[in-house]
């Protein structure tokens, strides 16, 4: 079956004064109808850029989409010019975006309703009045209390969580097939994070959309997503279902990532284990594995050979590593206990 959205071998480079940065370097992923996936990785690993590149929303220059395909509804979105009518019809109409900072991502000088109605007027050709009542409906749906009274308020009059709800309402206003949430919960505190994820999940179910959650918090999204892509230094290093990633993680980076997140079932005496070292400087990257300098499982082969490509590890599970970490990990665990 064809996927709803499929990205193949996407490469996005940034030409900076200091040199070429390969922010996204050969990323492939797909999204099926009514599926929720997570794209996980640390800051600067290219997870956001890969999403923005799909709709050509990165600034060019300095950015450049070097190669790749974004297949959506039998078309390659990268064939369209940056601000072509075809691409604009998809932005906001078929694929909606929720951004990280609800404070800076909403226009401070337009009322929240206006920011929703303009999308409705544009894509659904709604009249001003119809758009306004639809906007009110959407604001109620995402749980803005007293929405009727607040619909003419400006973004600064809302709290962070409420602003993000406005963002969600806006992104969903035209009933898009795909919703991309780029770190939707990073800027709000923990209690709100869960609420927002609930709202998003509820909304995509109601609207029969698919959802991509981009985040650095693997634990947070585990409850909501079906599949996970783990990214490191511009590439996908491991992908699979939640069960595969959590139960049978193979890539040293994924293992490190999960160790560094606190868990409720952990005893107090257990300490969080940070991943040693720093994220790689993505300029002049060596041809071999980018995680190598930080990897506790490295073997001689990692030094010699190029960065491995994703290889199947059973089921929907794929991993890009020379080492069969699974075995070693178990050995270590037993040695420790």
């Amino acid at each position: 079956m064809a996927h709803l959205l499929e990205v193949k071998n996407l490469r996005t480079y940034f030409h900076t004064e200091a040199g070429l940065v390969k922010a996204v370097d050969g990323v492939s992923f797909h999204l099926d109808e009514r599926e929720i996936i997570g794209v996980v990785g640390e800051s600067g690993c290219g997870k956001s850029v890969s999403q923005l590149s799909m709709l050509q929303l990165i600034p060019t220059p300095p950015g450049e989409i070097v190669s790749g395909e974004v297949l959506f509804e039998e078309a390659n979105l990268l064939d369209y010019r940056q601000n072509s009518p075809q691409l604009r019809a998809i932005r906001g109409g078929k694929i909606g975006f929720i951004f990280q900072e609800p404070m800076t991502s909403l226009n401070p000088v337009l009322t929240v309703t206006r920011q929703i109605t303009e999308v409705l007027e544009l894509h659904l050709k709604m009249e001003k009045h119809a758009a306004q009542s639809r906007a009110l409906e959407l604001l109620k749906l995402v749980g803005i209390p007293d929405a009727a009274r607040r619909m003419n308020d400006y973004p600064h009059q809302f709290s962070g969580g409420m602003r993000q709800r406005v963002m969600i309402a806006m992104a969903l206003s035209c009933n898009p097939k795909v919703l991309i949430a780029d770190e939707p919960t990073t800027a709000v505190d923990v209690t709100i994070q869960a609420q927002l994820l609930e709202v998003m999940k509820e909304m995509v179910e109601r609207f029969r959309s698919s959802l991509v959650i981009v985040t650095h918090n693997l634990g947070l999204v585990a409850r909501y997503v079906q599949r996970i892509y783990v990214m490191y230094a511009g590439r996908v290093v491991e992908s699979g279902t939640v069960k595969e990633i959590f139960g049978d993680r193979r890539h040293p980076y994924t293992i490190g990532l999960l160790k560094s997140v606190p868990r409720l079932d952990q005893t107090k005496s257990e300490r969080l284990v940070p991943i040693e070292g720093l994220p790689p400087n993505q300029m002049n990257m060596p041809p071999n594995c980018a995680f190598l300098p930080r990897c506790p499982y490295r073997i001689a082969r990692c030094e010699r050979e190029a960065w491995p490509i994703l290889r199947p590890a059973g089921g929907k599970h794929f991993v890009a590593c020379h080492v069969d970490v699974d075995v070693k990990e178990r050995a270590r665990e037993t040695a420790r206990s």
């Binding site: 923005l52 709709l55 929303l57 601000n83 604009r88 019809a89 998809i90 932005r91 906001g92 109409g93 909606g96 975006f97 951004f99 900072e101 800076t104 991502s105 909403l106 226009n107 401070p108 337009l110 303009e118 999308v119 544009l122 894509h123 963002m167 806006m170």
Partner: peptide, 19 residues
Amino acid sequence: DYIRTARSKGLKERAVIMR
């Protein structure tokens, strides 16, 4: 960021700039 948001909504460049 809000200009990127405006573009992500599919607005024409003219509307992005003027509005």
